[in-house]
């Protein structure tokens, strides 16, 4: 005796062959959206610059600054970047959907930890003290970000540089926090500063190309290695021809 599921499959198969013997046609809807990566990369840029420059001692004090620093990081590097990562699924962007979402969760988690520290629920030690419980955060971040860098080799050089420097920085920071070595942590922070600057460039590059309909900042394409044409490096080049209904509401055309 057939089960319910088997009956369903059998009936569907028979029904299909009763008509014309062909599978019903599949419909694929393509719906354009604005690129979500820019907000995510801007959130990463600002949060990483603020925290990394603090680690490097460019501003603030070791214990006095974090209580008024983590809140915006939790929302900008955290929630906003997370939202951009989730929207990247609709943009069909495997790198953005995975990495922006993952880094968004990192910044929210870091903000949560700092909030518990500010409330004196947990004790947050100084950078010179070994913190294996925090160091281990950076092991998966290092692995997945580095893997994203390998994937970005087919995309564009700025994105590759973001992920390569940040992935390497995670390795140094993990080692620094594990061993309680401020030197290694600061090497990682320097790499994060470079990665953050590349993140701003990449976000601005995507945003300006989309808004102006032509290349404004070079897309950093290595011909033959990356998917885009070499002309994508040339400011003024029209890289895309978006579908638009010029007289319509936002959604049917590019909007301000």
């Amino acid at each position: 005796m057939m089960t319910t599921h088997e009956e369903y499959v059998h009936q569907a198969y028979e029904s299909r062959h009763e008509h014309d013997g062909a599978a019903p046609p599949a419909r694929v809807y393509l719906t354009p959206i604005a690129p979500p990566a820019t907000l995510g990369l801007f959130g990463f840029f600002a949060s990483t610059m603020v925290v990394s420059t603090w680690i490097l001692g460019w501003w603030g004090t070791p214990t006095g600054s974090p209580p008024t620093m983590f809140e915006i990081a939790a929302f900008f590097g955290g929630l906003a970047q997370f939202a951009a990562g989730v929207w990247s699924f609709r943009a069909r962007d495997p790198i953005g959907s995975a990495l922006l979402t993952m880094w968004g969760t990192y910044w929210m988690a870091w903000g949560f930890l700092q909030a518990l520290g500010a409330a004196k629920v947990v004790d947050i030690p100084p950078l010179s003290t070994a913190q294996p419980g925090f160091a281990v955060w950076f092991i998966p971040l290092c692995l997945f970000t580095s893997w994203g860098a390998i994937a970005a080799i087919r995309e564009n050089l700025p994105l590759f540089l973001v992920l390569a420097t940040v992935g390497a920085g995670c390795g140094f920071v993990a080692a620094g926090f594990w061993a309680g070595s401020p030197t290694w942590t600061k090497v990682g922070a320097w790499l994060f500063v470079f990665g953050a600057c590349f993140a701003w460039y990449t976000g601005a590059m995507v945003l300006l190309e989309y808004a102006w309909g032509r290349v404004i900042l070079s897309l950093g394409v290595i011909p033959g290695l990356m998917k885009l044409p070499a002309d994508a490096n040339r400011p003024g080049f029209r890289l895309s021809a978006p579908m638009e209904y010029a007289g319509g509401q936002p959604g049917t055309r590019h909007a301000p």
Partner: peptide, 12 residues
């Protein structure tokens, strides 16, 4: 809405 600048500005 395909408004890239708006998404970046207001999100930030």
């Amino acid at each position: 809405a395909r408004a890239a600048a708006s998404a970046a500005l207001h999100g930030s």
